[in-house]
């Protein structure tokens, strides 16, 4: 009987492994050139954009909220980067210019949700719309090519550091830092307890409003950075550059939550990796991209009940109005 209980507890992990291995076998049989070193390296490279943005989303989910505006703000940040390049700023400055704009948005939504306790979804609708609106400001909505290739911004996507492709390298750095913060520092404890029971966390002397604000800032900064890498890979700044991020990011986080019974760094990475394998494999099977979106959505829906099942046991305080 003991075993039975254990087996049930491990069910999500088993399911994940089955799906993961199953898909790899499927793609190796039916897709040509899936299981090659080059392709696998490619997967690790392409996963980084979604993985970085999803890492940010994880923070917001951990503190018990949602942010569905980060990808729209990311579009603005990417456009600001392109605009700064066009104005002659050096590439690193342009990257920071974009991130600076995103930071302002992150502070706004973090303040509204964390300090003023306004509903996150509605704030996101407003902030997201403003962000996407702002994305049109620099160029009126047209693509920005000026100085783009000559500025060296391409390094963000094509360059390599220590022999590792730049996006992959950055992704690894972010993941390692985030892992240490969340699992091995007191700040990680703050993030998790803020998400699990806001009132108890407050009564334990944790400044929950501030923790929530920081989570929103991290989310938008990482989202914006992912948008900038994507823009660098496209070769010009385009308003729609980060629009595809929302679905895979939330799916990745949700898959991770289902596997590990709580949102976290490794889970999010595995989720993002699974999604990248799906879209890569589908390409190798010559299936159109919308099949991959369809699969992603189905995975999102499937992972939700599993992750919720595991969360029932606790005393989720996020639904209770905080009094402090």
């Amino acid at each position: 009987m003991n075993k039975g209980a254990k087996w049930k507890d491990e069910l999500p992990v088993i399911l994940f492994i089955i799906i993961f291995v199953g898909l790899i076998i499927l793609f190796s049989i039916f897709g040509s050139g899936f299981l090659t070193v080059n392709n696998i390296l490619g997967i690790l490279r392409h996963v980084s954009i979604v993985a970085i943005a999803a890492l940010g989303v994880s923070f917001v989910v951990i503190v018990g909220h949602t942010d569905i505006s980060f990808y729209l703000v990311a579009c603005f940040a990417a456009m600001m980067m392109g605009f700064s390049l066009a104005k002659g700023l050096p590439a690193p400055m342009a990257v920071f210019a974009g991130l600076g704009c995103a930071l302002a948005f992150g502070i706004c939504s973090g303040f509204a949700v964390g300090v003023l306790k306004l509903p996150d979804i509605i704030i996101a609708i407003a902030i997201g719309t403003i962000g996407y609106g702002c994305a049109y400001l620099p160029s009126g909505g047209s693509r920005i090519y000026t100085n783009f290739s000559s500025s060296g911004i391409g390094f963000l996507n094509d360059g390599s550091i220590l022999g590792i492709p730049c996006p992959t390298f950055l992704m690894l750095v972010f993941y390692i830092i985030a892992y240490i913060i969340l699992e091995h520092t007191k700040f990680g404890t703050y993030f998790y307890s803020a998400g699990l029971n806001k009132i108890a966390a407050n009564y334990s002397g944790i400044r929950v409003s501030l923790v929530v604000l920081v989570a929103f800032v991290i989310c938008i900064l990482l989202g914006a950075f992912a948008g900038e890498i994507n823009t660098a890979s496209v070769g010009n700044a385009e308003v729609t550059t980060a629009l595809t991020l929302l679905l895979p990011c939330y799916t990745a986080v949700s898959i991770g939550t289902a596997i590990f019974k709580k949102p976290g760094v490794i889970g999010t990475f595995l989720g993002a990796l699974l999604l990248q394998i799906v879209s890569n494999g589908f390409t190798h099977m010559n299936l159109k991209y919308w099949y991959s979106d369809l699969t992603t959505s189905i995975l999102l829906i499937l992972s939700l009940p599993i992750s919720l099942l595991n969360n029932r046991k606790g005393n989720s305080g996020s639904t209770v109005k905080a009094s402090a």
């Binding site: 998790y192 307890s193 699990l196 029971n197 009132i199 108890a200 966390a201 009564y203 334990s204 709580k262 969360n311 046991k313 606790g314 005393n315 989720s316 305080g317 209770v320």
Partner: peptide, 15 residues
């Protein structure tokens, strides 16, 4: 303060 309502104010469940 050890609060009176342990479930909502006292401990963080699932931790």
């Amino acid at each position: 303060l050890v609060p009176g309502d342990r479930k909502t104010e006292g401990y963080v469940g699932n931790m």
